[in-house]
Design a protein around this nucleic acid. Structure first.
Length: 211
DNA sequence: TACCAGGAGAAAA
DNA sequence: TTTTCTCATGGT
């Protein structure tokens, strides 16, 4: 909570995950896997232009057609398959709304059963698209914990997630803001962040806090 | 030119 | 079981 307050004071409230629909967030969660968000935006714009950014629209595309539309996001062949896997799952259960009505852990297990949806992607969908209190652990979060000596780097995803969830009230707005602040913090140039103390969250940080 | 980005799954050790 | 490899575009 101390880190959260520090980052909030430093950066202010962060707008995050701009999207018109919950489905768009789910699609973005897959497209952003190991990918710069600006490239994801290009792919989402192409899907919108093709009038395909909804469940039926994506399901109507062939893997090759979808791959071509999302090409700017990188890894387009594999992400095309992953998106279609997710769409088929959502169609089979009755859409995102059906997912929202399930107990959280059941919804999470369902998403994780989809080939191409891992822990972070599933939790992005639960928190940002479905407004459920699930803390997202990404590369930046791990790096932040490591560089502030709050984690060894060997903890599992769920160990870290439960750590945040135990320490914070179960409020989706708080989880979203915290995650957004971590990403904002990570994007600050080295030594320019008030929280860096000589180190930022960049991979090539000269302070070399990582083990 | 080289590095990096809001991962995940398969293959290899 | 753990580590390594593969997937790829675009900005800096």
């Amino acid at each position: 909570m101390q880190l959260y307050r520090g980052m909030l004071a430093a950066y202010g409230e962060q707008p995050w995950w701009p999207a018109d629909t919950a489905f768009e967030i789910a699609v973005g969660a897959v497209l952003t896997q190991n990918t710069n968000w600006s490239n994801v935006e290009k792919a989402l714009a192409r899907l919108k232009q093709a009038d395909s950014l909804d469940l039926q629209g994506l399901l109507a595309l062939s893997p090759a057609q979808l791959a071509e539309l999302i090409r700017p996001a990188g890894y387009y062949n594999i992400k095309s398959q992953r998106l279609l896997n997710l769409c088929r799952y959502l169609r089979d259960i009755g859409g995102l709304e059906a997912l929202r009505k399930m107990p959280v852990e059941q919804a999470r297990a369902g998403l994780l059963s989809v080939n191409g949806v891992g822990f972070e992607t599933a939790d992005d969908i639960l928190l940002y698209a479905l407004d459920l209190p699930v803390f997202v652990i990404d590369t930046y979060t791990r790096r932040l914990l490591s560089r502030h000596a709050l984690a060894s780097g060997k903890e599992s995803y769920d160990q870290l997630r439960h750590g945040f969830e135990r320490a914070l009230p179960a409020e989706p707005d708080l989880y979203r803001q915290f995650h957004a602040l971590i990403v904002t913090h990570a994007k600050q140039a080295c030594r320019k962040s008030p929280l860096c103390e000589g180190c930022c969250l960049r991979v090539s940080c000269p302070a070399q806090f990582d083990q």
